[in-house]
Amino acid sequence: MGKKYKLVQKVPKTPKSAYNHDRFISQLIENQIKHFHELEKGLVKAGEKLTDISKIKTELHASKYLKKMTALLHPQGAKKPRKATQRKRARRAMASKPKSKQARRRSS
């Protein structure tokens, strides 16, 4: 935090031992996977095999399937978000680029 604040509450770190991607999936994640599997049936191309979701037992397995399916539907989710300043700079750069002959003809 750059700015100094008067009232600051410290938040403890989570112990490293909390992490366990081999944990068996909960019914919540099981159902999340079932819902994606339903979508997969409509997305799989001829000759492609549908995922055998009965083999998805752990949170690690689940995360791989969820990433694959989410990437199909929302590939933007993997991109590093562009900051507003980057978008502004990009727009300014586009605006200052010399116009093509076509664009000059159109605007005259």
């Binding site: 994606f36 979508l39 969820l66 990433k67 989410t70 539907l73 929302h74 989710g77």
Partner: peptide, 13 residues
């Protein structure tokens, strides 16, 4: 993406 959403067949699709 590895965690994704719970709103799948209606909204994400």
């Amino acid at each position: 993406q590895q965690s994704s959403t719970m709103e799948i067949v209606n909204l994400l699709k």
